[in-house]
Structure formats: C-alpha cells, structure tokens
C-alpha cells in the first residue's frame, strides 16, 4: 500500500523512440478505486504512457510503481504476477482473430484459473451479458462491428475481475450513442467491481462523465490533474483551449 493512496505512480518518466521524444519527465499518480481519465492530443504519447503502467513499454529513465513496487526492472516472468492484477482494453480491441468470442473471453480464465469448463462458460456468458452482448459466443471477431469488438474486448478484460482496468481510447471511432454506451459501461464496471480505472481519451464530454479524476498530458508531461471541476476551472490556457476545442491558443494545431 503506497502512502499516498495511489495504486500506480509514474515518476519522472522519459521515453523516446529514435529521435522522437514522447515522454519528457512525466509524473502521474493514479488514485486507488477511482476512474482517472487522461486527456491529451492524438499522437501525444497517451497510449505510450498507458503501456508503461503494465510494463509493455519500459521507460528510458524514471520509475513505474505499482503498489509502491518498481516494475521497470522486472523480467517478463516477474511481470506476469503484476499483470494478473490488470485488465486492458486495447484501441482496436486486439481480440485473437483465430478464436471465437467465447474462447477469447475464456482465454484469461483458462490460462489463470483451474475452474471447470462449465463454470468458465458460465462466466463468459455473464461477462458478455454485462457488456450487453449476450449470445454472441460463437461468432468470430471478424464478424463483429468495431463497437461490438470493443465490448467483447472489455468482457475479456474484466473476465478475471482485475483490480485495475486500463482503457486505450475506448470510444474513438464509435458513433455518439455507442460512445455513450461504452462510457456508461466504464462507469458501471467501476461501480460494480470497485476497480481502479485508467481511461485514455480525447473525448472531453466522456472524460467529464466517467472521470472522478482527470489529468492532461501535453508535450510529454502532465500539465494539470484534478477533479472534473478543477479541470474546468483551470487557469491553464492549454487546458482551456483543449477542453473547449478551440483552434486558437497556445496549442499549435497546424
């Protein structure tokens, strides 16, 4: 248990790919049991930052703490123990296209539990019910629409009832009603399972809807963090320009 009540902490994280510096001394704490939304420009390193939290990407410099333990120097084998506490929804869902929906959602259950097959299948239908997709067990991912794939991805992410769920742009590319549905799912999942959620988004409305805590990533750093109200009232011009979607301001658009 970390002293600050943060389940995940990124400390002074630097990351570059070739000559391109993506994260430049980023500091961020994710409070336990809440939904934190990270907003910021497309291509601004939000996904990169998210992938640091689960050890998919390692920083060039800095620390990533999960419950106070630095995961940066862990081997894949050691990381597996940490990763079991996480669920992650990928941008394009990343379902295994060689398996049907049922096997996809059952995958983490079969890998990490010794539950009898009957119970696994029950859990799969329960999770698919939770994301509003009952009865699609035998479809292949290629037969589903983008929104359905994301919901199956969410069902897979929550299959093991993780403590922490990471969402990589859950609503990008979806139509407004579906975005709203996904946002509601995120909020419901958080309430039902009492998990810590980290959501990456550039959908401002959704961010204010699901987030109890909002952080803005700009030029490789977190420039503001606080409750939705605090972010709305922020005096930072970059934050104001971003949340109001204005073309003019300190953010160079073109």
């Amino acid at each position: 248990m970390s002293e600050t009540g943060n389940i995940i902490e990124l400390k002074d994280v630097y990351k570059s790919f070739g000559a391109q510096q993506v994260l430049k001394g980023l500091n961020l704490g994710i409070p336990r049991g809440q939904t934190t939304v990270i907003i910021g420009r497309s291509g601004g390193g939000k996904s990169v930052m998210l992938k640091h939290m689960i050890g998919l990407i390692k920083p060039n410099q800095g620390e990533v703490l999960v419950d106070g333990i630095n995961i940066v120097r862990m081997s894949d084998h050691q990381l597996n123990g940490v990763r079991r506490r996480f669920g992650m929804l990928f941008q394009e869902a990343a379902l295994f296209d060689s398996m049907n929906v049922q096997d996809n959602v059952a995958f983490p259950l079969r890998e990490h539990t010794k539950l009898p097959e009957r119970q696994v299948l029950n859990l799969v239908s329960e999770k698919l019910g939770m994301v509003g997709l009952p009865g699609v067990e035998h479809k292949m991912p290629s037969e589903l629409s983008g929104g359905m794939r994301k919901r199956v991805g969410l069902a897979r992410a929550i299959a093991l009832e993780p403590e922490i769920i990471l969402y990589d742009e859950p609503t990008t590319g979806l139509d407004p009603p579906l975005s709203a549905a996904i946002n509601r799912l995120i909020a419901e999942t958080q309430q039902k399972l009492g998990v810590t959620s980290v959501v990456i988004s550039h959908d401002i409305e959704g961010a204010f809807l699901v987030g109890q805590n909002i952080a803005m990533l700009y030029q490789g750093k977190i420039i503001a963090q606080g409750s939705p109200q605090e972010i709305r009232d922020s005096s930072d011009e970059v934050v104001q320009q971003f949340i109001h979607g204005r073309a003019e301001g300190p953010i160079e658009v073109i």
Partner: peptide, 18 residues
C-alpha cells in the same frame, strides 16, 4: 506479424501469457 500490428501480442503480455 498480423498479431503484432493488431496488438494481439501485447494482449498476450497483458493477460500474463508470455
């Protein structure tokens, strides 16, 4: 390669399967 570019390999890592 397809699994890599569609993040399915990352998904395996995330689900603690090497």
């Amino acid at each position: 390669g397809t699994m890599r570019v569609t993040e399915q390999i990352d998904a395996l890592y995330v689900m603690a399967v090497n």
